[in-house]
Computed example of a mutant assay.
Amino acid sequence: MSRVLPTISVEKPWGKDRLPAPFTAPDGQRIGEIWFEPPAELDQLLVKYIFTTEKLSVQVHPDDDQSEAAGKGRQGKSECWYVIDAEPGATLGIGFADHADTNTLRAAALDGSIEDMLVWHEVRAGDFFYIPANTVHAIGAGVSLIEVQQNSDITYRLHDYGRPRELHLDEGLAVAKGEPYDMGLARHVSPTGTIRLVSGPFFVLDRVDGPMGAELVADYPGALLAIPRSDGVTVGGSPVAVGECALVDAVEALDIAPGGTCLITRPL
């Protein structure tokens, strides 16, 4: 049954006490993530908002086969980032400037120089990056973004700027690719127009300007998730607001009014 998904706000030391509209942080709290509880019908996917005032750890996620081999379940973690707000000079670190072997990465993780080996991309609202499993990455300070990911919580921290949290060097280095990021997986999304952002292998993601065309409707044969980016999005006749995420049991129940914009996604 179509419905708006429950949310979970997560405090983080690197989160924000002033969030971009329509979100607000409770007094005295620094909110770093807002999650939408994955519905049983589409539990392969997780959607969240991330808000940062400090850099997140340098980290990496395993793929499906590596996760299963480690006894952590069948699903690894590939993800994507859609930047919705960025302070001047805000950056995302993705991949390395040059190829590096495991020994080099280990030494750099231990002495902190792995941060400087990453390529830091200055970002603005509308920038988009698909991050395959095994890609070493870090979200910088001053960024607000939507993350759509395989529903997995397996994160291996390689470097955390001296914060008193556990690192996972052996596990992380076993799955990390010491190579440059494929910029063919990144783009700046035009403010208008329907565009496919992710075409697999684990999920599809579209940024849709309403109303939806017949070809796109046909590409969503079952349930999907809808993440409004403007007013004018309804599911089963009920409005879904910016800052919410809805399970849509059939694409025919989703209406995006002319001038309305929505992200829609489904697993493959």
Rank of each mutant, 00 (worst) to 15 (best):
C262A: 10
L105I: 10
P258H: 09
V235G: 02
L5S: 08
S113E: 02
D255P: 00
S144K: 04
M117W: 15
A25S: 12
L268P: 08
W120F: 01
G259R: 05
D17V: 09
I114H: 10
H188Y: 07
I227H: 03
V251T: 06
W81R: 11
F36Y: 07
Y82W: 07
D127S: 01
T261E: 09
L167M: 07
V10M: 14
A257K: 11
T192R: 10
V204R: 14
S199W: 11
P211G: 09
D65T: 12
A69V: 00
P26R: 03
A70V: 05
F36S: 12
E68P: 07
K16S: 00
G32D: 07
L42C: 10
M212D: 14
A253K: 12
Q29A: 13
T7P: 15
D249T: 13
A109Q: 08
K72A: 12
S238C: 03
D182W: 12
Y82D: 03
K77L: 00
D64C: 11
P13G: 09
R157G: 07
A86W: 10
A174G: 05
T194V: 01
T24D: 15
L145F: 04
V189C: 10
I195Y: 13
V204H: 09
A186P: 06
E54Y: 03
P180K: 00
A176V: 04
P39F: 11
G237S: 04
K72L: 15
K72G: 13
T53D: 04
S67I: 13
I131H: 05
T52H: 08
H188G: 15
H61V: 06
D43I: 06
D98A: 14
E215P: 05
F129H: 07
A218R: 04
A138L: 03
D231V: 00
G184S: 12
G28T: 02
R163L: 01
G200C: 02
G76A: 12
W35P: 02
E252Y: 14
M183T: 09
C80T: 06
A257P: 00
S57C: 01
P13C: 08
T135H: 00
T155A: 03
